[in-house]
Design a protein around this nucleic acid. Sequence first.
DNA 1: AAAAAAG
Length: 525
Amino acid sequence: MSSDNQIAQEALTFADLGLSPKVLSAVTDAGYTVPTPIQLGAIPHALQGKDVLGIAQTGTGKTASFVLPMLTRLEKGRARARMPRTLILEPTRELAAQVEENFIKYGKNHKLNIALLIGGVSFDEQEKKLERGADVLIATPGRLLDHRERGKLLLNGVEILVIDEADRMLDMGFIPDIERICEMIPFTRQTLFFSATMPPEITKLTEQFLHAPVRVEVSRAASSSTNITQRLVKSGPKPWDKRETLRNLINAEADGLKNAIIFCNRKVEVAELFRSLVKYDFDAGALHGDMDQRARMQMLSNFRDGKLKLLVASDVAARGLDIPEVSHVFNYDVPIHAEDYVHRIGRTGRAGRLGKAFTIVTKSDVKYVDAIERLTGLKIEWHDGDLSTVVASESEDDAPRRGRGAGAPRRSGRKDEGERKPRGERRPRSAAEPKPADEKAQHQPELRSEPVIADNDERPARREAIKTENAERKTRPERADQPRGDRQERPRREDRNARQRQEDNDGTVGFGDDMPAFMRVAGKV
DNA sequence: AAAAAAG
């Protein structure tokens, strides 16, 4: 460990790490000169053929810390048919694709065959690539094993094995698969193993499959990072309350909001919230695991390229995805598992940038917030007053407003909202309805919110640009390969009331009738 | 109270 430190102190640029000229030139072309701590710690050892145990979050430069030495080592030798020379295991399809992009970027001076084996796409092309002999094989476990069972893949030629995001593999129940795969690969391989955390199961795995690993640990940037401003935002409990809270928040943050990921706990909510935001003319897209794979990729790349401002997503997007310059994370739902919170907000404030993370909290979420604060050891401030200042009402579903004393007469027959259209975004009460006088004081927001970086002079132009791009995007024939045919079941309501939007962003983007079918799918029950 | 990954 002292040797790591020495290397870290002496080697200050990529040129000092022992990478090949081809790799170095690609790194330089990509605009990088100074390695991150994980790269400094891992690359020299990886080049020497040692096993590495890297404990690091994404956003720390972890991917390059195995891609670059692998490329250097791959310069000697050739792949044989169906016998890949290296294997990288990733927990999600998006992460796998992201690693492939890294190999393409940094391997541009090499002639390497790269194969990406992930589910949701056809086998044919993947098999062709295997047949041709893959230098680099990047895979999610399920599809990899599938190929192997079909006899299209032999793993006994693998020289380097990378297991990435091991703790997430654990969460997702992949460990048995990982063990199986590890056992198929020769003992003589080099193993590079990465995990953000080291729960006991993972430690056991490393003891089982790593040989005298060099341990490289970098301080967790994301979890305790001070460059992310975190706030809790009070909200009423109903979907329309939360959606309104979110809209208000997005509008209030408009000046500093370059782009944002909005996390929901469930796929259904992703689809619903997405539809709602589009209806309100926000530049939004959606991403969750039930979407067609092509659409997932498309959404992600649009968001990454800045063609899409808001990405409504499930936790498929919570970990690992490397999207630089996400300015905001909104937790539309408080994550049930506290660790997920850390991963979600880690999508912003990356690479030393400033980020903001807002979490919408209803009364019933308080216990989850407590768990998050316990985990992170931080008390998260309220954005504009805590829940005691929100409408004191919200017993389950009725109670338009529990004015104290003689309650306002309930509207009869409104016990369940069966006949109401939740999609209509109607609010059960008027926003202008005054609070009882004795509660007014509490209603004042604490005027101590953080300063916002002012760059509003460029904003309108930027918005226009985004709208234009969005309009282009929606003309893509996205639904061509959509298998499910339940679009017509849902009555369309295209008669928008003009009063729905008194905001300035009435440029009418959104999908309207062009909304791709996959967006609707998850909303079905 | 979930999501993800094989189909």
